[in-house]
């Protein structure tokens, strides 16, 4: 890591495990639950959040010294909403097909507390470059969990990955289904996302025991 000092590298690596936005900081849960029924949607959402976090953190960090403290929440919310709306409008005009895939996520991004949470906790007190790294790092941490949950829910729930059947055809009873395997449709329902995240937390904390709460 010639580009990054040790301290900067920590900003990116920490959110991946020990300071994960979902499992430790409890941020951005709603979207993690809503959209992880399919791997593809999880990845699209992760990329969108990565973009918004990177840019948003930089913008907030730029104006951090002129924001009046009393209305800082409004300012933050408006910055993020404006960013997302502009991107949405531009996509609608120049890449209509892409915008149709993404516009579903617009609301989810604006209300995603991971973005607000990092603005408040980091970008308001740190410089440009470090805020940018923090945004990217946390977005990656968020992405990891989303992709793991999306992977298991789609695999066990629908028997597919990225839309391609893995176990054979469920209706024609080919592949694994010929042996009596059935898809667990329950995995597609949102409550199972909660339970999958719960299990991820379990595994993570039994590995790194210093994270255990009492």
């Amino acid at each position: 890591m010639g580009l990054l000092s040790k301290k900067d590298a920590k900003l990116i690596l920490d959110p991946l495990s020990d300071n994960n936005p979902i499992t430790i900081q409890v941020l951005g849960i709603c979207s993690a639950l809503a959209i992880t029924a399919e791997l593809e949607a999880s990845v699209v959402m992760s990329v969108a959040v990565l973009f918004v976090m990177g840019v948003g953190n930089v913008v907030i960090s730029l104006i951090r010294n002129i924001i009046p403290s009393r209305i800082k929440i409004i300012v933050q919310l408006i910055v993020i909403a404006t960013l997302v709306i502009i991107v949405d409008l531009v996509l609608k005009a120049y890449a209509y097909e892409l915008s149709k895939t993404l516009s579903v996520f617009v609301g989810l991004i604006i209300t995603n507390c991971i973005i607000m949470g990092r603005f408040e906790a980091f970008a308001l007190g740190n410089g440009l470059w470090r805020s940018f790294l923090d945004g990217i790092g946390n977005a990656f941490g968020y992405a990891i969990i989303l992709i793991i949950v999306g992977f298991f829910r789609e695999l066990l729930g629908a028997g597919t990955l990225w839309g391609y059947p893995v176990f054979g055809d469920a209706i024609d009873k080919t592949g694994l289904y010929a042996w009596g395997y059935e898809n667990n449709g329950f995995m597609l329902l949102s409550p199972m996302a909660l339970i999958v995240v719960g299990i991820i937390i379990w595994i993570q904390r039994s590995k790194s025991t210093h994270l255990i709460e009492d």
Binding site: L189, P191, A193, I195, W202, R205, T209, D214
Partner: peptide
Amino acid sequence: VPSPLRGLGITFIITGLMAIGFM
């Protein structure tokens, strides 16, 4: 509760079960 699950972990799982109930 198994110690790694204590706190956040078990809360997630309970919420999941409650959500199934509310369904």
